[in-house]
Design a protein around this nucleic acid. Structure first.
Length: 261
DNA sequence: AAGGATGTCAACCGCTACCCC
DNA sequence: AGGGGTAGCGGTTGACATCCT
């Protein structure tokens, strides 16, 4: 859209525009930006861009700071706990990346978005279904999330009863928007991240129906019914499908090879 | 070993909402 | 009220890395 030129360029001269740098940031540029932010704060990015001498747009400076340079940004692999939160919050809010990022301290919306696209959507492709389909949502809720919880439990001590009840209750929440249980997530996040306590698999609690949504899955082709993985064509006992409901190969939760957990 | 395929992620783009004058 | 300036959001792109044949 020709009349929707990036606003950053609207108040830059043509000479300046032709001089605007794009692409990866250099260490020197990073150092300049960090220095300027330490003096002027992380606001007014256009002012920083101009006065720092960086040949970048204010927008580019802001993005670089937010996604990479700010001191509280977390780098490295997404943890199991973070993965669980992403799946859970995405089931409630969809592609509201910045909102989801608020519940994952130190993670950026960009990082979460990339995670979703590269890891989660890949699994949807393997299942030959749309990431927004009922099949994919059911598989995520009834297979991947409980298994993720199991893996989290395997590395941390037992949860409190309240936490178990919370998890069970919350996992049964319908997918809806706007989200009516947002305060619970604040509590959940605090409990989980601050106290280093743990979950219990929903499948371990009789009140849940994590493995038997047959009446729901009967409406779609493929999925997981009573622990059996069905492919989108309705076949069972799929060669190549592990019990995550995924095609064997890369493990979506870690960088390790999937051993058919 | 090579090169094509695939995955990852930083950065950019287009758009919208908000604020201020 | 409305227009300009700005920040933030979600989608997309492209460079680089890694994997596979």
């Amino acid at each position: 859209m020709a009349d929707r030129i990036c606003h950053d360029s609207m108040f830059r001269s043509k000479a300046e525009d032709s001089d605007v740098r794009k692409g990866p940031w250099t260490e020197e540029e990073d150092a300049i930006l960090v220095n300027f932010v330490s003096i002027h704060g992380d606001a007014r990015w256009n002012h920083i861009a101009r006065s720092s001498g960086l040949k970048r747009t204010g927008k580019s400076c802001g993005l670089r700071w937010l996604n990479y340079l700010r001191p509280d940004v977390r780098r490295g692999n997404i943890t199991l706990e973070e993965q669980f939160m992403i799946l859970k919050l995405h089931s409630l809010w969809g592609n509201r990346w910045s909102k989801i990022a608020q519940y994952l301290p130190g993670r950026t919306d960009n990082e979460i978005k990339n995670y979703w696209r590269t890891r989660v959507q890949k699994q949807a492709r393997h299942l030959r279904c749309d990431v927004n389909s009922n099949l994919f949502k059911e598989t995520m809720k009834n297979v991947w999330m409980p298994r993720l919880v199991e893996r989290i439990n395997a590395q941390t001590p037992s949860p409190t009863y309240e936490q178990v009840e919370y998890m069970v209750t919350d996992l049964s929440q319908p997918i809806e928007e706007p989200n009516p249980v947002e305060p619970d997530f604040v509590q959940f996040n605090q409990n989980y991240h601050c106290q280093q306590q743990q979950f219990v698999p929903a499948s371990d609690v009789s009140a849940t129906s994590s493995n038997s949504p047959a009446e729901t899955l009967s409406d779609v082709q493929g999925g997981v019914v009573n622990g059996t993985v069905y492919d989108p064509a309705g076949q069972t006992g799929l060669g190549g499908f592990n019990d995550w409901g995924c095609v064997g190969g890369d493990n979506m939760w870690t960088d390790e090879k999937d051993e058919g957990i």
